[in-house]
């Protein structure tokens, strides 16, 4: 990554949901603003801009990261996934997304993108994550609508579904 200056504009190349992209941004621009307002991927939401609420969580090289605490220029060379990259095909939900719908694990849906990205990363890394581990992971997210219980249920249901698919494919 180059040394950034306030005045400078930088060409930033990275993978976004499997596609190579190059975007231009000032050195001080946040990754959230780059994704939302430069690239038009508005599924990543901004809730607090100080790293507490978790709404802006994206995956950077497979790890959940607060996009509001990352400069756009830091994305250089990274592999970034956002909620727009979760759908297997247009109009088709992933097992995690489908479980959220089935268990009414969202209401306003504003915090949901970040939660999906966190859980997707967890289930990819630790397919056998315990309920406690799932809760621990979810504790980095604030949801004001659901009271969380349906989210935990959806996560467990998605985990079971993914394991089933894994077994079927094995």
């Amino acid at each position: 990554m180059p040394k950034l200056s306030r005045e400078g504009r930088y060409a930033i190349g990275f993978r976004l949901n499997g596609q190579e992209v190059t975007a231009h941004a000032p050195g001080r621009m946040l990754l959230t603003d780059l994704l939302r307002h430069v690239l038009g991927e508005t599924g990543t939401h901004v809730g607090c801009e100080h790293g507490v609420c978790g709404a802006c969580t994206v995956q950077v090289d497979g790890e959940p990261v607060r996009a509001c605490l990352m400069l756009a220029a830091q994305a250089e060379g990274a592999d970034i996934r956002t909620v727009e990259g979760l759908e297997p095909a247009a109009g088709e939900l992933s097992p995690l997304q489908a479980a959220f719908r089935e268990h009414f694990a969202l209401q306003c849906g504003f915090c949901t993108a970040g939660i999906l990205m966190s859980l997707d990363a967890l289930l990819a890394r630790i397919p056998d994550a315990s309920e406690d581990a799932i809760r621990e992971h979810l504790s980095g997210h604030l949801c004001r609508c659901t009271g969380y219980a349906p989210i935990v249920k959806a996560a467990l249901a998605a985990q079971a579904q993914l394991k089933e698919e894994e077994a079927a494919n094995a």
């Binding site: 939302r36 991927e41 508005t42 599924g43 990543t44 939401h45 901004v46 956002t82 909620v83 727009e84 979760l86 759908e87 109009g91 939900l93 997304q97 959220f100 719908r101 089935e102 009414f104 969202l106 306003c108 849906g109 504003f110 949901t112 993108a113 999906l116």
Partner: peptide, 20 residues
């Protein structure tokens, strides 16, 4: 308890909030 019609857009990042 039918599935919500609101959910597909919200779950895929296609819903439109004021800043979108």
């Amino acid at each position: 308890s039918v599935p919500r019609v609101e959910d597909p857009a919200l779950l895929t990042g296609r819903a439109r909030f004021v800043d979108d």
